[in-house]
Design a protein around this nucleic acid. Structure first.
Ligand SMILES: NC(=O)c1ccc[n+]([C@@H]2O[C@H](COP(=O)([O-])OP(=O)(O)OC[C@H]3O[C@@H](n4cnc5c(N)ncnc54)[C@H](O)[C@@H]3O)[C@@H](O)[C@H]2O)c1
Ligand SMILES: NC(=O)c1ccc[n+]([C@@H]2O[C@H](COP(=O)([O-])OP(=O)(O)OC[C@H]3O[C@@H](n4cnc5c(N)ncnc54)[C@H](O)[C@@H]3O)[C@@H](O)[C@H]2O)c1
Lengths: 208, 208
DNA sequence: TTAGGTCTGTGAACGAGAACTCAATCACGA
DNA sequence: TCGTGATTGAGTTCTCGTTCACAGACCTAA
């Protein structure tokens, strides 16, 4: 492997590969070819090989990829070896749904802190987590929490983002419909549900 | 404007432009330049002009874009002139959050039907909508509902998708972590929250 | 009426990422 | 030990989308 900047698109596909591998029928075979992997995941096989080749020689020519080794390798690349703790900011409609969701553990991510501004919610215990006051965000650094999920009203999002960054957070999953300013060493991933939904009618057949 | 296939990326930006225009400070000026628009939305100004130019001459050289006209124009392109009714499939954690959300009306989309398989939920009235049995999906065609939001367990997603397509649905917003097979005339937009979250640790500074 | 400044629309250059292709590599069996 | 078939890794090509740059349209004011 030579030096290469890894495309963001590749990073985004790795979790998909990982999930595919986890749910792969354990039919005794220890290895899987890029062809088989590609079919399950609905991508092309050269894509799979190129993605994986960015990170060194993982596969074996003539054989394929060792399933267990590949899983471990992808986890290492994504830093998902040990469980990551994430903070949820905003326990509203969306926040509550996210907190109840158990699917994140496939990716070794676990929501381990919840912050609110509403006094009626602060102090309540939900899913074994005690909801804290939003001013406690500054404690995130010493608690080793560096990933945050933003599910608060758009107006407050930049303020809270600034606080998160001050507290050493390096990755933010943003559900609010606002653009968040952040230094380049902080990664912001946006999920804009409204925009995704608004795109659909365009693709409907005319007259529908 | 010549004939051009419009890039998907352009379509995806249009709702962002629309939302930006809606929240633009109404300081009396009737028009806005691509420069100003670009600043608000954090894109480059040639991008804005190119995106809009796919759909004919909307702006006025030397002046800019008439704000009200542009809003109307974008709505027309995206077919968001008259309210679109959408069906929500699955009233679980996520489905409930989506149904309560009022922000979709910015984009003239409204959830007007909810389907469930759980008998204890069927028949309940939530947000003025009566939850129906999933077998009623076939009635969507005559009700003129052609957009659906999938928020059910992954295992059932392909089955229900097939039913939705049979019922004439042409656009699906998919929250399940599975790949949905659909004919090319049906648009599927995926929102994979788990994958988005799993990407974040990769970008954290080493040692964090 | 015309000159000068502003801003759009668009062809062309550029860049990133996806798909293709094939030489190099490996397992296995003769 | 060597030949065969399978499969990777990576250089090349292709496709799509973004950025650039400028001609032309428009407004205003003298
Ligand atoms: N619910 C959805 O389906 C949906 C869809 C698309 C986008 N969103 C976006 O997600 C965000 C959350 O949506 P929601 O429906 O859960 O809203 P919500 O109003 O139900 O919940 C927001 C929660 O955040 C809390 N909050 C407000 N300010 C805060 C602060 N400064 N610090 C900590 N907590 C604070 C509020 O007390 C409330 O509990 C919004 O930006 C919304 O636009 C939601
Ligand atoms: N909740 C989250 O935060 C979250 C995050 C990421 C992904 N997801 C995905 O979104 C989907 C829904 O998640 P959830 O947390 O709301 O799950 P949930 O279990 O809370 O809700 C699922 C609902 O769908 C209903 N249902 C099941 N089969 C059905 C069918 N065939 N037809 C109609 N309804 C049916 C169930 O009765 C239930 O009410 C899942 O695929 C999940 O993986 C959710």
């Amino acid at each position: 492997m030579r030096y290469h900047k890894v495309p963001d698109e590749t990073i985004r596909r790795l979790p998909v590969y990982l999930r595919g591998l986890c749910s792969f029928p354990n039919d005794g075979s220890r290895s899987i070819s890029s062809q088989q992997l590609a079919e399950v995941l609905h991508v092309k096989s050269p894509q799979v090989r190129k993605d994986l080749s960015y990170f060194g020689d993982i596969g074996t020519p003539g054989v394929g990829y060792d399933i267990q080794k590949l899983k471990k390798h992808i986890r290492t690349i994504l830093r998902l070896n040990n469980t990551h703790c994430a903070a949820l900011i905003g326990y509203g409609n969306l926040g509550a749904a996210l907190l109840k969701y158990t699917g994140f553990k496939t990716f070794c991510v676990e929501i381990s802190a919840v912050f609110e501004i509403n006094p009626r919610k602060i102090g309540r215990v939900v899913q074994k987590i005690k909801i804290e006051d939003v001013s406690n965000i500054s404690s995130l650094r010493k608690r080793g929490i560096s990933v945050a999920i933003l599910a608060i009203p758009a107006l407050e999002s930049q303020d809270v983002t600034d606080k998160l960054i001050d507290a050493g957070v390096g990755g933010i999953l943003n559900f609010t419909p606002s653009y968040l300013s952040a230094p380049t060493n902080v990664k912001v991933v946006n999920i804009d549900i409204g925009v995704s939904l608004a795109c659909l009618p365009y693709y409907l057949p005319v007259g529908a």
